[in-house]
Design a protein around this nucleic acid. Structure first.
Lengths: 206, 206
DNA sequence: ACTATACGTGACAGTCCGTAACGGATACCC
DNA sequence: GGGTATCCGTTACGGACTGTCACGTATAGT
């Protein structure tokens, strides 16, 4: 997962020429762009290297496989995402869930979920790492939304935020299975209706 | 999607040697088995042909691509699934949802969902066909469960069964993203708790 | 200077996809 | 039976991708 054998931590300094940190970023950016453009399966390491202006061995020096490269590129994106609105106590539940609904249908995340689904179903070693590095933190942000709603009295205090996350995140993620190319705006409307239904369900749970 | 240019319908009879129907079944069975064993990406047409005891061109004579082969193998599985319990009015909602929860986490279906997710995110032409052939009918069975629950008075009659399907199917499908290899029995328990929560949510919607 | 590593280029073996060519087999029609 | 059209299995091919290696060169610390 980490580039190579890991960066030299703290005072310790590796001998020889250091890694080009500019290449690090270029590789991750190129991987993200191509993942969105052509998908995981048609993404090639050759193309990533070319777009990053880098030789292919330079990519493999950092990531042992195409899977690790993709996982790292998605994980790096998380720090670029907007902060989960940790201002006041926030508005109502619906207003807080809406931006998360669209974030869950981000093309990059969906491509990654597909990788996760596949490596999962066959018990790949990557599955657990993927979950821990890329999904768990996003789920935590979801759980805090429900905690805030409970603090505001919008939600029953004994409801498990983790299970609620499964329900809400599952419903939104599920929308990505629909043939989006044909009716991308119809799905937007459907998400709105879904959001209404979920809020009605949750707020009746008091 | 259909094998070759389609089978001769009705009285019409194609000239020349007919297709080996035994090979048809062997190919689909081999594809299903390998899809579960190694996943979509590591499934090769060469292996499918070998397991089916068939030459590789014999596979390509029926399906234009690996994607079509996989889609057909999943679609063929649907007819093997148990009938959706169209007996009396059924038991309660929870009892009807339970078998569907495990059906949604069938390894074969999950592999297929991953294919759908990928081809979807990049606007593949297959996406719409996949949805229509393999998903839409399963969703219909789900909708009927909610219709029966409404007939029994367990559910508000104005609730949209289609949206409810999104919520329930989404929650269960989402579980497949968890690292299953490590804790396969923990997920079983989680599905039980999730089922309890969903029933509590739905039945409060009156 | 010396060492150790990174870089780019180019090449390589191995695998897979999808297609084509061949000889033989099997159905229908005259 | 002869003719025709399609199937089958085998074998081979071009193209693409993966992951690795070797080479010469560049860049850091000692």
């Amino acid at each position: 997962m980490a580039p190579g054998t890991g960066p030299p931590v703290g005072v310790q300094r590796a001998p020889g020429r250091p890694r080009d940190r500019q290449a690090d970023d270029a590789i991750l950016a190129a991987a993200r762009e191509l993942l969105v453009e052509v998908g995981f399966e048609r993404l090639t390491v050759t193309d990533v290297a070319a777009r990053a202006g880098v030789g292919r061995p330079t990519v493999y020096r950092r990531y042992a496989s195409k899977e690790e490269l993709v996982a790292a590129s998605v994980e790096a994106l998380r720090s670029d995402e907007p902060a989960p609105d940790t201002g006041t106590l926030g508005g109502d539940l619906r207003a807080e869930l809406l931006p998360r609904a669209s974030a869950l249908r981000h093309p990059l995340l969906l491509q990654f979920l597909a990788v996760l689904l596949v490596s999962n179903a066959q018990g790949s070693e990557f599955a657990a790492t993927y979950w821990r590095d890329a999904i768990a933190q996003r789920r935590a942000a979801f759980g805090e939304i429900f905690l805030r709603a409970q603090a505001r009295g919008e939600l029953a205090p004994d409801a498990d935020p983790d299970l609620l996350t499964d329900v809400v995140a599952g419903a939104f993620t599920y929308q990505a299975l629909r043939p989006a190319a044909v009716e991308t705006e119809a799905i937007e409307a459907r998400v709105e209706r879904l959001l209404d239904l979920l809020c009605a369900l949750l707020q009746r749970l008091q």
